[in-house]
Design a binder for these strands. Sequence first.
DNA 1: GACAAAACAGGACAACCGGTCTGTTTTAGA
DNA 2: TCTAAAACAGACCGGTTGTCCTGTTTTGTC
Lengths: 230, 230
Amino acid sequence: MSAEITARSKIRPGKRTNDPEGLRKRVLDVAEASFQARGYNASSLGDLMAAAGVTGGALHHHFPTKKALALAVIEGRVAAAVEATWIAPVLAAGSAREGIRSVFEAVATELEQQGFVRGCPLNNLAHELSLVDPDFRAALAGIFSAWREAIADKIRADQQAGREQDTDPQRFAALAVATYSGAMSMAKTTQDSGVLRDCLNALEHGAASASSSKGGAKRRRRVLIGQRSF
Amino acid sequence: MSAEITARSKIRPGKRTNDPEGLRKRVLDVAEASFQARGYNASSLGDLMAAAGVTGGALHHHFPTKKALALAVIEGRVAAAVEATWIAPVLAAGSAREGIRSVFEAVATELEQQGFVRGCPLNNLAHELSLVDPDFRAALAGIFSAWREAIADKIRADQQAGREQDTDPQRFAALAVATYSGAMSMAKTTQDSGVLRDCLNALEHGAASASSSKGGAKRRRRVLIGQRSF
DNA sequence: GACAAAACAGGACAACCGGTCTGTTTTAGA
DNA sequence: TCTAAAACAGACCGGTTGTCCTGTTTTGTC
């Protein structure tokens, strides 16, 4: 436990190089990873300082309180993660449904490769912090809102192209986000990413027909095995 | 904050009545509520002791560690909550889809009445504890499994009655649980229970047609207002 | 009533947490 | 070069946390 590698080289005590942006980035990297792996409350500033190779004074200079650090992680990292893994791919896809499908599959594949499910960063923090502080809640709700709105916008774009005429953009977006969030929750708890593909399949088949239970690809039940993360 | 009511009447210091089952129940009541409202890590044993009107010795006698208490809450209360609000109603319903619909609506109505969304007890604890401890993870995964299996069983029962021939029980169950879990996650974060009805609607319309956007019931956008809980 | 076990009381404690404080070094601008 | 602000170092502190420990009281059993 604790720090395996001291990030900062302290060979020369008399020589120091100020690097506020780099230090800030290192702290955010470590905090993002630790919040994801252990949660906000279980991440102590001492652990973060050690892992980032940062002293208390430096940390306090950039992030006066733990709450400020978490808010910076949410607004600067979690929001970016949702943008990168969901919003951008969906908007760039040929259609909303194609985009959603590709995201589900990309995430499932990634989880299978790394052999460990850490869950959705947004949902992880949302569950822990939404009821604790209004500022946290507002920041997290904003990310959910942007996420849903992007999907709804894509549906509207599809509709202007003559497709998805019977689809309600808002409701469909809510369903897509909810399905992904819930599937990741289960995948994290069971450490089995297969549920992501199950949900995608059921979602694509209109929550009804799942085609032939025989003949088709046998359902994979791949239970992932641990692997240290942090 | 702290204890508003001291549950235990201490009028007679010399008179004491042993009530192990009652005390255990009181502790579990308080712990369940606090875990739900603040989470596991943010709930201190001191607060729980004060709220339940229990001394440290008594608490330690029944629950040697905080982990043991949480495990008891998960296995004794969270599992029962899922059974009562989901499994039993679905199995008792005329069909799986009817059961799912009634549960969604019942929960949405309940949330609207109490004006505050505390989230799904299972998902709340699952996000915070799944990666922390294997025992936690196993207990939580078991509840998810039972939940999904109950819905899948109901689909299979429907199929033996000639319905749902094109539905894959496992996948459909995964989608239902995921949708609910994710919808509750959003509802908690946005403090808006309307997303539950949005998701139910989208789910029932086969993730596609949401009927007329005009003429039909206007979508409710009811933002709930706070209300102390604990 | 004797007695052992269960049930409970309440204090003690060591570890830890987040925040603050003072002091030093680096850096940018005039 | 001088100077002030920014950047960083590192110790310090009050409060809290979970757990443990030693007693005392109640309760079931013979």
